[in-house]
Write a protein that binds this DNA or RNA. Structure first.
Length: 420
DNA sequence: TCTGGGGTCCTAGGACCC
DNA sequence: TCTGGGGTCCTAGGACCC
C-alpha cells in the first residue's frame, strides 16, 4: 500500500503563509524570469488561468480580477518543503521524496481502518506545524495513490484524504477519470489511446497490457498493470545518484556580446561545480549551448552546442571553466541576440571512484582543497561572497524577478516584520 | 516588450566486436 | 553467381514528469 502526500497549490500556499492577506484571493506564481504561470490558487484556476501560460498573455485578466502575482522564490519553497519532508519521515514507515511538493509513503504494517487515520493525522500535523495544506491519496500502487490524490483534491467531501482501496464504487470513479489525469499519460498518448477505443481510466484498466505494449510502448503497458493493482514502478527510498545535471537560464535582457556571454556561462559553470561537489560527484563530459529567442520569428535564429570530454572526470570549477569558456568562444557568433545559454554535465560518478589518466599532471589534491575552502567560505558567509573573476560584476543578463517575496525562513535580514 | 528549469526512461539505428 | 549470426555500447530524439 502506498500513500501520496501532495501539497496543495504548493508555491501559492508558501506565499500565503507569510502574507495571509492574500488568503481567499486569486494568486499565481511565475516561473523564472517571470515568464509562465507555474502555480495557481483555486481562485485563479476558477478564473480560467491555465498552467504554463505566458504571463503576458493574461495581463488583462490579471488586472481585471486583481490577481496577486509572485516571482518564484525557490529558497523559501525549498526550505518549507524540507520541513514537510521531515514531518512525513518522522510519521511514516518509509518515504520516497518524489518532488519538491510530493512524497510517496509505503504503508507497510498499517491496517485498513488505520490508513485513512494515518492520512488525516499527517495532514493535520503538517498544517499545524508548517502551515501548508496537503492532500493524501492511498492505493495499492503508486499510480492508484496518484489517482486517489487527484480525486481527493477535486472533491471536497473527502476532506483531503482518500483510500482508493476502500471505496465500493471504484469502477464508477475510474470511468469518470480522464486519461490525461493519469500519471504518465499526456495529451499525445491519450489521443492515441482514444484512437484504439480507450476513452477513460476504467477502459485503460480493463485493457490487456500486452496489447497496449504492442500498440504503444512498455511504459503505458506498465501503467495498465499499475491501474489493475500490480505494482510495476519501484518504490525508491534512497534517491538514486544523478546521472546528469544542468544549469541553464533564459536571460532577463538579451545577450549580444561575447564578454557578457562568457560571464553567464562562467556563472552557470560555477554553480554546476558547486552542485557536483555537494553531491560528491564528478562529471566525465560537459555540453555548453546557447540559442536565440525561438519565439521571435522575425529575428535571425542560431542554435549551437559543444560537447567536450574531460581528460579526467572532475568537479573543480577552475578546471570546468578551462573547458566551458573555450567551448562558448568556439560556438558564439556575432550578430545575434541570445536568449538562453547553459551548461550540462554528463556521466556523473562518485568522486572517490575516478579513473586516473597517466598523462594527467594536475595536482588534484591541492585543487580539491581550494574548492573545499571556497565552498566553506560561501556557505558560512552566504550567497556568493567568493566568486571567480570571469563570472563578471555587472551581470546585466540576470533573471527578471520583479515580484519576489522575502526569504522569510533562511535570512535574518529578511525576517517578517510585525507591527504591534 | 513579454514564452522556465531540471530531470528520467525508452527506443531505434549506427558502429563495432568476435 | 556468390557475402552470417549474434551480441554490446553509444547517441539522438521522443515522451513524460514536476
Amino acid at each position: 500500500m502506498y500513500a501520496l502526500v501532495d501539497c496543495n497549490n504548493f508555491y501559492v500556499s508558501c506565499e500565503r503563509l507569510f502574507n495571509p492577506s492574500i488568503e481567499g484571493k486569486p494568486v499565481i506564481v511565475l516561473s523564472n524570469n517571470d515568464g509562465c504561470v507555474v502555480a495557481r490558487s483555486n481562485e485563479a484556476k476558477a478564473l480560467g488561468i491555465a498552467m504554463a501560460v505566458p504571463a503576458f498573455e493574461i495581463k488583462d485578466l490579471i488586472q481585471k480580477n486583481n490577481v496577486r502575482v509572485f516571482s518564484s522564490n525557490y529558497t523559501l519553497y525549498g526550505d518549507l518543503s524540507n520541513r514537510i519532508i521531515e514531518i512525513i519521515r518522522e510519521e511514516s514507515p518509509a518515504i520516497e521524496v518524489y518532488s519538491i511538493d510530493e512524497s510517496f509513503v509505503q504503508l507497510e504494517g498499517i491496517s485498513l481502518p488505520n490508513r485513512a487515520y494515518f492520512g488525516y493525522r499527517l495532514r493535520k500535523r503538517i498544517k499545524q506545524w508548517v502551515g501548508i495544506p496537503v492532500t493524501v491519496g492511498i492505493g495499492t500502487t503508486k499510480t492508484l495513490a496518484k489517482v486517489a490524490n487527484h480525486i481527493a483534491k477535486k472533491q471536497k467531501e473527502w476532506d483531503g484524504v482518500l483510500d482508493f482501496s476502500n471505496v465500493a464504487n471504484w469502477e464508477e470513479i475510474l470511468a469518470a477519470f480522464e486519461l490525461e489525469d493519469i500519471w504518465g499519460i499526456n495529451v499525445r498518448t491519450a489521443r492515441k489511446l482514444r484512437g484504439i477505443g480507450i476513452q477513460n481510466a476504467l477502459d485503460l484498466r480493463n485493457a490487456d497490457p500486452r496489447r497496449i505494449h504492442d500498440y504503444l510502448n512498455v511504459v503505458i503497458a506498465r501503467t495498465v498493470s499499475e491501474l489493475q493493482g500490480y505494482p510495476c514502478i519501484p518504490f525508491e527510498q534512497d534517491p538514486m545518484p544523478k546521472k546528469n545535471t544542468a544549469v541553464t537560464r533564459s536571460f532577463g535582457k538579451e545577450v549580444k556580446t561575447l564578454s557578457e556571454m562568457k560571464e553567464a556561462v562562467a556563472t552557470f559553470t560555477s554553480r554546476a561545480g558547486e552542485k557536483l561537489r555537494a553531491a560528491k560527484q564528478v562529471a566525465k563530459e560537459v555540453t555548453v549551448f546557447l540559442h536565440t529567442n525561438p519565439f521571435r520569428k522575425e529575428a535571425p535564429q542560431y542554435y549551437n552546442g559543444k560537447r567536450v570530454r574531460f581528460p579526467v572526470p572532475t568537479n573543480d570549477t577552475k578546471e570546468l571553466l578551462s573547458f566551458t569558456i573555450p567551448a562558448i568562444e568556439s560556438i558564439f557568433r556575432e550578430g545575434y541576440s541570445y536568449k538562453k545559454a547553459g551548461v550540462m554535465l554528463w556521466g556523473l560518478i562518485p568522486s572517490d571512484s575516478i579513473q586516473q589518466n597517466i598523462f594527467d599532471s594536475t595536482d588534484r589534491k591541492k585543487a580539491a582543497k581550494l574548492m573545499s575552502a571556497f565552498d566553506g567560505i560561501n556557505s558560512e558567509y552566504g550567497g556568493n561572497i567568493l566568486r571567480f573573476g570571469v563570472t563578471g560584476t555587472q551581470q546585466v543578463w540576470k533573471l527578471r524577478q520583479m515580484m519576489k517575496s522575502k526569504k522569510y525562513t533562511t535570512r535574518f535580514e529578511e525576517l517578517l516584520n510585525i507591527k504591534i
